[in-house]
């Protein structure tokens, strides 16, 4: 029998090899992928987030855990789609135009995936037009914008303006984050939410998608 405690530990310890191996076993045993995600993966990533919050984990541990989780999710996702399971919410994420910094955005994307969200990552240096067309096509619940440089943070404003112009602003919640971003700045540019780090982003995203269930 697939040892789910082992999968939980593998994600926590960033051991991608073991995570993939246990997931394969579980799939072979016909375990419900939705249950595997809700009962093992999401709690494991939540624990990773907790360890980061209390300063035990740092960026390297977070990235390793994310890789282990991704290895497992890559196997489970096609099965989920086939069974018609609904994700926690749909997210489009990207680093804004002018900025190539990827690490923070990747961490947020991984934590959201680990939180059961369906995440489309547009990458870095994403133009407002690209964000707009993705929101139009994918109809996400949430749009997450990241920037690391003080000089590129204004691109977030431009992107939100572009959404307004396209008449899509009301169709999606916008969350912003990154080193130069403050709650003040987020409000000023008309974003709906701000989070200080990747693990907080999951909490904020849940509040937007399921305001009733959020703690």
């Amino acid at each position: 029998m697939a040892n789910l405690k082992k999968l939980y530990d593998a994600v926590l310890n960033g051991d991608a090899k073991t995570a993939v191996a246990v997931t394969q076993e579980a799939i072979a045993e016909k375990l419900d992928p939705a249950v595997l995600i809700s009962d093992t993966m999401i709690p494991a990533m939540a624990e990773v987030g907790r360890l980061y919050e209390c300063e035990e984990y740092f960026v390297p541990e977070l990235l390793l855990a994310a890789r282990a989780m991704k290895g497992s999710l890559t196997l489970l996702r096609p099965l989920l789609a086939a069974s018609g399971t609904k994700p926690t919410g749909k997210v489009v994420i990207g680093t804004v135009k002018g900025d190539l910094h990827d690490i923070g955005k990747n961490l947020v994307a991984s934590m959201l995936e680990g939180g059961g969200f369906e995440v489309t990552d547009l990458g870095a240096d994403v133009s407002p037009d690209k964000f707009v067309s993705s929101v139009r096509e994918l109809k996400p619940d949430l749009l997450c914008l990241s920037a690391l440089l003080t000089v590129t943070a204004p691109s977030m404003r431009t992107t939100i303006e572009a959404l307004k112009q396209a008449g899509l602003r009301e169709s999606v919640k916008v969350m912003v984050g990154g080193a130069p971003v403050t709650p003040e700045f987020a409000r000023e540019i008309g974003a709906d939410g701000y989070s200080e780090n990747a693990s907080q982003a999951v909490v904020t995203a849940r509040q937007f998608c399921h305001p009733d269930k959020a703690a």
Binding site: F58, V59, P60, L63, L100, H101, D102, I103, N106
Partner: peptide, 16 residues
């Protein structure tokens, strides 16, 4: 360096 695909991996390696 910003556009170097190796940078992220090396950066993370070098953080420890």
């Amino acid at each position: 360096l910003a556009s170097d695909p190796e940078f992220e991996d090396k950066f993370v390696d070098c953080m420890s």
